[in-house]
Design a protein around this nucleic acid. Sequence first.
DNA 1: TGCCTTATGTACCAAACGGTACATTAATAA
DNA 2: TTATTAATGTACCGTTTGGTACATAAGGCA
Lengths: 199, 199
Amino acid sequence: MNTNTSATVGRPRLFDEDAVLAELTALFWRQGYGQTSMADIVDASGVHKPSLYRTFGSKEELFALVLRRYLAERIAMFAQMIELSGPGVAGIQNFLDLFEADAVSERGRDGCLMVMASNELRGVLPGYDFSADYREQMRGQIHLLILQSGEVDGTGVAEARTDLVTAYLLGLNVVMRSTADAAEIHRYVDAMRATVRTW
Amino acid sequence: MNTNTSATVGRPRLFDEDAVLAELTALFWRQGYGQTSMADIVDASGVHKPSLYRTFGSKEELFALVLRRYLAERIAMFAQMIELSGPGVAGIQNFLDLFEADAVSERGRDGCLMVMASNELRGVLPGYDFSADYREQMRGQIHLLILQSGEVDGTGVAEARTDLVTAYLLGLNVVMRSTADAAEIHRYVDAMRATVRTW
DNA sequence: TGCCTTATGTACCAAACGGTACATTAATAA
DNA sequence: TTATTAATGTACCGTTTGGTACATAAGGCA
């Protein structure tokens, strides 16, 4: 296949590979996998079909690529939010503020591509269990947030809080993707704020 | 269209309308909307295409029908679980037991058709915002559970707990649909049990 | 200057898709 | 018995789908 991403020979590529992947990530994120046709992909990317197939492989392979890229980006976003949030239980509240700000943004309304894909495409992409991968990595980030709050690891408390916040955030992503205005999202975030206040 | 569901004249229907809807509910639930073709629907139901179209309308209309039926069933299941759970905070724990038992069952592994559909088909079914409808009704049931636990309405506490449990359960449905064994599901339910213990 | 390699763009493909025309069958009503 | 109504089953429709053949263009290299 196309292992040589920076060939020195032959006609040079007219499009930026990563920029196209970013554009298509947004497209899949908005529309879902099944609702997005190759024609849509051609339109959104401005790249003709044969070039897409030569560069990224089939639609499934392209989507797998998009998912991996998205996963890395999203986990990085979590990591950054957590770092910004700071220590203590107040840090968790700060994290919720940051998460809510993203949730009510235009992109936030689309929820999470990973949550969407794991609902739509369970077991469709061969050889890559992205839903487990995502949940594991996301939970790892939340675990860091909880530990950073001062909770001691290994007692079970930190782990239970981690699981609670993880499941809660997955649910919030469902709410975000469906029709829910900023006020409703705020209500759901406030519910977790109240719980965190008891920690 | 077919308003006359029990016609006395003409050739009688060879299939049971509700049994077919139940079968197709299971099919959509397993596979999702986009991954299910009319050919699949014909195979699963044993009913030929023209009869399906005559009885249920287009694929979209059929799915809308399936969704409404499923929603009523699911809310009824919630209501029954809540009734079985009994009063007090212990009732919430009982509810979590019942929910977990369903979650680890074969059907539970497919998560929730409504959650799946609201992720896959946001705004695709014209004139029926099923995701908002579902969330509202589900939240209403959870609200009953919280009130039944003894929490006083109107103080904001009951409402916050309702929202927390609602979002959490939506997230749990995401976990259930993805690859997660009974042990992992148990861990996530236990996280909520720990929170409820502080109520 | 050619040669080789790779990307591009048009035009096309077979298969699968959702949906339907039409002749047939089976029931009730006159 | 016959007319009417509705459901069935085959066979088919046009469109859209994911995917490709092929000729052309544009670079590096000998």
